[in-house]
Amino acid sequence: MTTPLSKEPRRFAPLGKDGGRLPTLKGIVFDVDGTLCVQQNYMFGQMRSALGITKGTDILDHCHSLPSPQDEAALEKIRAIEREAMVLQEAQPGLVQLMDYLESKNLPKAPVNHLLGKFLEGKKFEPIVTREFRPPKPSPAGILSIAKAWGLVGKDGEGVGEGLIMVGDSIDDMTAGYRAGAATVLLVNEMNAHLAEHEHTDLVISRLDELIKVLENGFVGHIAGGDEGSDLKGRAEGVLRDEKGE
């Protein structure tokens, strides 16, 4: 016997259609490295080597801990490595199709980190939150800053994320979205598959263009059950399945 469901799933009305009482999606925030483009993990080793720091030291924390002008010199070393890596960037499957769809719907979209001009020239992204934005993910600050720029604010005049979706590939992406009050979508791969069951993940896709069907039909996220056995997760195909397989 399953325990009664403890809350409703996150939902948005079908994009561009009357969803009745369902909330309207206001915009989508994307992570870049590993989400819009294929992960380039080798960069981090190059960055640490250039900065003379060990693997256990956070790259940006180290840069920001340096006195001026050493901090800016360290950040420029990082930017130089990123510029070289951008030449070798590979787009994630379905990237252009998804962005064309979002443009056709005039849905605001913004990247957290640098823009993929190599693949998306002419596409409108604003505002752009760079790696240097503080505090970084998993803080929701970057997402809330984007929300405020889009005019999505609460009574206190600060940004609110309830009308947004955060798309990413890491626990920091999922947690930042969750803390901002946004729905979260995980672009799943072999390395992050365990995050599909994480409480901060609302929906899972394996290709970016799978999100088109989700938005067309109306976003439905996971349902948190009274116990782990009855916890249900939204899937890109729009089908909710029981985690027990029942």
Rank of each mutant, 00 (worst) to 15 (best):
A183K: 02
F125N: 09
T57D: 05
K109Y: 01
V167A: 04
D31S: 06
A74I: 08
F12R: 03
L186A: 01
H114G: 02
E210T: 07
K55F: 14
G117F: 09
V153I: 09
L102H: 01
P93V: 10
L195D: 14
L187N: 12
V160R: 08
G27D: 06
M86C: 05
P135C: 03
D18F: 07
T54V: 07
D202P: 15
D231R: 15
D71I: 14
E237A: 09
K26A: 04
G117W: 08
F125Y: 03
L107R: 00
R235Q: 15
M43Q: 09
E84M: 08
W150A: 00
A182E: 05
A176H: 00
N189L: 01
H222D: 10
V112R: 05
S104I: 09
R11F: 07
I81E: 10
L75Q: 14
N189A: 11
V32E: 03
A193C: 10
I146G: 04
I78K: 00
G159Y: 13
K148N: 11
T57K: 13
G151V: 07
L60N: 03
R207W: 02
T2M: 14
A196K: 11
V29R: 07
G52C: 01
A193G: 01
F119H: 12
G234S: 04
Y101L: 14
D71F: 12
V220E: 12
D33C: 04
I78W: 00
R48Q: 11
M47S: 07
K26Y: 02
A73C: 11
L116E: 10
T3L: 09
L203D: 14
M191G: 14
D231Q: 12
L115A: 12
S170H: 08
F133I: 15
G117P: 04
D172A: 12
F119G: 02
S6D: 13
M86T: 05
T130N: 04
L22N: 09
K123P: 00
L88E: 14
L211K: 06
N217I: 00
L88Q: 15
L187S: 01
L152F: 11
G52L: 06
I223W: 10
V96F: 00
F30S: 05
P138Y: 05
K109F: 02
L15D: 12
Q70E: 15
E126N: 11
A180P: 10
V167E: 08
I28T: 09
I143A: 01
G27P: 02
D209L: 00
G154R: 05
V160G: 05
L98W: 07
L195A: 09
D31E: 08
L215N: 08
R21D: 15
P14Q: 07
S68T: 12
E103S: 13
A182W: 00
P69T: 13
Q97G: 01
